[in-house]
Structures are given as structure tokens and as C-alpha cells.
Design a protein around this nucleic acid. Structure first.
Lengths: 256, 256
DNA sequence: AAATTAATGAGTCATTATGACACAATGATA
DNA sequence: TATCATTGTGTCATAATGACTCATTAATTT
């Protein structure tokens, strides 16, 4: 089979005219044993949305995700995981963007790329709430942490994206260690357990959690004990950086 | 923070100019206890590549993947799984495509979308070798099954894509049933075991495999026995369609 | 027709992983 | 000094896993 005319190919039963590519970040924050998610409020104050943006011409999608994360949170180089790509044609013209453009007397005709529909590559990360100073972007008035339950009215399929990210993050607890960027250099086993419990949304048995985590062999036990709290002083642990990142790469045991 | 000019936004430290979106399918074929992968040979016969294509203007990316699968194999509605999105900027201008266009005196300037770099959403599927009649597309002369080891020289990062697909498919054996579209209505446990062994690339214990699969509760045991082979006749099984697709949706147990 | 053969069905058994729970030790607080 | 909540450690029953055994059986051979 040979190529006849280029139109033959492009219009072969389909309207080929490329959708654009954007990135949406689901940034979970860990605060007082609660999961929050970072959201932006549109300029007209009606709708919330995930921090996201277009992918630069010569930019790796992973870099675009990092850049957006940094712009919204000030955070650098942290664990960002691509979890799914959303490609429904209903993810069409970003009405918020179009509105914003119109309000500034910026108009683009239907063929301009900005008016096309977008494919969105989703990334998630889990960051320490206190380290973040949320910054709104050009299309939003507010950027802040929001409780996962209940979520406000969200743009397009952003609610679906958040739930999918949560599912994937939970699944991934069985394969990859977590907590390195969420805990101080030295921490107690209870601190770490709280993170797992918060993500999973359920309590875990203390003894069994201990056994499991220690079997991963990514922690160093300190001689020092924590003091300051009431009652018996727990041991302090730190992540063994080398083993942690090796496990992040190669995976761990399974199942919580 | 407010939007000043649109250029402000688009050029805010980055060259925004959208990459395009394409889909690449990694189609594994199961034949005589070997895994094959469907590849296309470029018109100039130098390089092999994965079947792929652009995403239509109003097309869901999942549909684009299905369409490409159907065009290359004639197969309809089978299990296609999105596994990763490849977004390196080095995935630039498809030289094969450009060459093909030039050879047909089709030229496009640098700004035409077809000359942009592409983001590729990867899908994989596992199909029955014998059901497929491979069809080359407009940019290829040959479409055929190729052994996984060794792979020929491949376009861009297509080798990486294939290995990633294989990894993901193996991981997924722990979560989703497989085999429905690979086996006749009635089959023996050995038939099914062969599929798992082929995908995993290692032998499994017969008794343990039996126990594990039956614990999934997706098979119906037939009263009839298989006859035709030498030696003791094994039971025949069939997938319980309802249970199978429920498990495909909700997941099964873990670990092989 | 009987013996042979090799794959099957159905188990056993040791080891490991998991979930639920128990209890003594401890260190701040009363 | 006694209290008390939390911690470190361990037990125990159950489930899951990996390696293996053995009688059964249907086609093939003798």
C-alpha cells in the first residue's frame, strides 16, 4: 500500500488536526493527618481547577510537570509520578482560558492552537504542606489547599483526575517507598505510619506496620530516642538514602 | 497575579508551541509459546517501527488506538491498555514520515504541525497470532510479526516503548485476568499456563498454577474431557464471561 | 489384549506472610 | 512514688506460597 496524496492520509476517514498537550498536576499535601489537594480558583471565582499548563516546544513532559509544580509551590526536584493520560475529546476548549482571553480583548479564531482540545498527561506528588507557599497562575485568583472530601466544583474532568491519582498513589504504596520528602531527617515509626494511614484512609496495626516497614530494609535505626512527647520515648529512624532510592527505582515487597 | 499580554504568558520563560499527539501500539502476538511483536518496515527498508498514528481532531485517544489496531490487524474491540506516555523532546520530527513526504514531493515548512515533535501515548495488547492478517500502512512496505529477541533496529525510542510495555504487561498479570481472546471457547489448564509462562518468560509449577487460577474464580469446569492428545485426558475449562470481565474491571489477587 | 508411557488431578508438607492480639517496659505527668 | 498512655517485642492462628509426591488415566506400543 502506498501513500497517494497527503490529503488521502490525513482525511482517511478522520479529521486529523492535532489536539494539544498539557500537563495537570495533582499535588497532595500532608497536614495534620489529612490529605489536601492544591487547587486554583478561576478568575471569575466560579470554578476550581488543578494546576496545569502547556508543554513547551522543546520541553520534556516530565520537565513541564516539574516546572508547573515549582511555579505553584516553590518546591524543587521532588517525586513526581506520571499516572495516566486523559484523552477524551470532551476535554475541549478550556472555557476558563477562553473567558480570560476575551476579558482581555484577546481573541483567537477557531484554528488557533490555543482553541483546540487538549490531551492531558497527569502527574501526582505528595508534599509537605508546611513547605508550600501556594502561588496562583495567570488565569487564577487564588491558589490553596483544599480538603479531598468534599471537593468543590471542578473544571472539566478534574475531579476524575484527582480520584484516579489517589487510586494510583494507593496502589503504589505496595511498590515504592514514600515519606522521604515528608519527614524530618529523624522521625518515629508513628510519624511514618501516619503518612500511610492518611493516604490509605484507614488505620493500620502498629506492630504489623513495624514489621513490614523494617522488612523493606530502607531505614536506619538511631540510638537516640525521641523526647518531648508524653509517655515512653520511641526510637528515632532515618531513611537510608541509598537504599531508599534504590527501592524507589526497583520496587519493594507488596501489599498493605 | 493577572494576565497582561498573551505573549507574556506564552513566552514566560518558555517557547510554547504545542507538540502533537500520536499513539503507538505494542501488539504482542502469542504463537507456539513465543511472544512476537507486530512491526512495520519503513518504505526505505532500513528501519522498523511500531504501528502508530495521529489522534483525530475529535477522537478519543483510546479510539485512536483501537482504530490503529484494527487497521493493522483487522481485529476489533479487544483489550487495549494504556501503559505510559512518552514525552521526550528528542522524539522529534518523524524522519521516516518526512522522507516519505519528500519522496512524494510533499513539502511542509517548519511551522506545519506535521513537522512538530510528538508526544506518544503507548498502548499494548496481546492477541492471537493466527487471527491476524498484518497490513502495512501508508508509510511502510511490510507489516509482520517479529521475535522479541532479538529486535531489529527500531525507530526513535520504539525499543524502549516495547520493553516498557512488556514490563507493564507482566506486572498486570497480578491484577487482571488474561487469555479470553487468546483461547478457544474451551481449553485446558495447560493452554492457559502456557500463556502465563510465555509472557513471564519462565516456567511455573503446574500444581501451584492450578491452585492460583482456580482461586480467582473466573473459570467454569466442563464435564467433557479433552481428547486427541496422548496420555491422560485433561479437563476442559471455559472462562465465565461475567466473572472474567468483572475481574478485569476490579482486579484479582496478587503475585505470580 | 496387556503392558508401557507420560501427562493429569489431587493431594502433602515446610516455609513465609499476614492479621489480630497480648504484655512487659518506659518515661513524662500527676 | 504511683499512674498512665505509648512503645518494643512477641505470640498465635490463619492464609499464601513454593517444592514436591503419587495414584490415575487414556493413548500408544508390544
Amino acid at each position: 500500500m502506498k501513500l497517494k496524496t497527503i490529503e488521502d492520509f490525513f482525511l482517511h476517514g478522520h479529521q486529523f488536526n492535532l489536539p494539544g498537550v498539557s500537563v495537570d498536576n495533582v499535588i497532595f499535601g500532608f497536614h495534620e493527618n489529612q490529605l489536601k489537594v492544591l487547587l486554583l480558583q478561576s478568575l471569575d471565582k466560579n470554578i476550581w481547577m488543578l494546576p496545569g499548563g502547556f508543554v513547551g516546544k522543546k520541553e520534556h513532559i516530565d520537565e513541564a510537570a516539574s516546572r508547573i509544580l515549582k511555579d505553584r509551590t516553590g518546591l524543587d526536584i521532588i517525586f513526581l509520578k506520571q499516572f495516566y493520560t486523559f484523552g477524551s475529546p470532551l476535554r475541549s476548549n478550556n472555557k476558563i482560558l477562553v473567558k480570560a482571553l476575551e476579558s482581555l480583548n484577546q481573541k483567537y479564531d477557531k484554528d488557533h492552537w490555543i482553541m483546540q482540545r487538549f490531551i492531558t498527561v497527569g502527574y501526582y506528588s505528595l508534599v509537605e504542606y508546611a513547605n508550600v507557599n501556594p502561588q496562583p497562575d495567570e488565569f487564577s485568583s487564588v491558589c490553596e489547599w483544599y480538603d479531598l472530601d468534599p471537593l468543590p466544583e471542578l473544571l472539566l474532568d478534574h475531579k476524575e483526575i484527582i480520584y484516579k491519582a489517589l487510586d494510583e498513589m494507593r496502589l503504589n504504596l505496595n511498590y515504592q517507598p514514600i515519606g522521604y520528602n515528608l519527614l524530618p531527617k529523624e522521625f518515629t515509626m508513628k510519624n511514618l505510619q501516619s503518612i500511610y494511614e492518611t493516604i490509605l484512609g484507614r488505620k493500620l496495626d502498629r506492630g504489623n506496620f513495624n514489621r513490614k516497614i523494617l522488612s523493606y530494609d530502607i531505614l536506619d535505626k538511631k540510638e537516640k530516642h525521641y523526647s518531648g512527647g508524653a509517655h515512653k520515648a520511641p526510637y528515632l529512624y532515618s531513611f537510608n538514602k541509598k537504599k531508599y532510592f534504590k527501592a524507589l527505582e526497583n520496587g519493594l515487597g507488596r501489599d498493605f
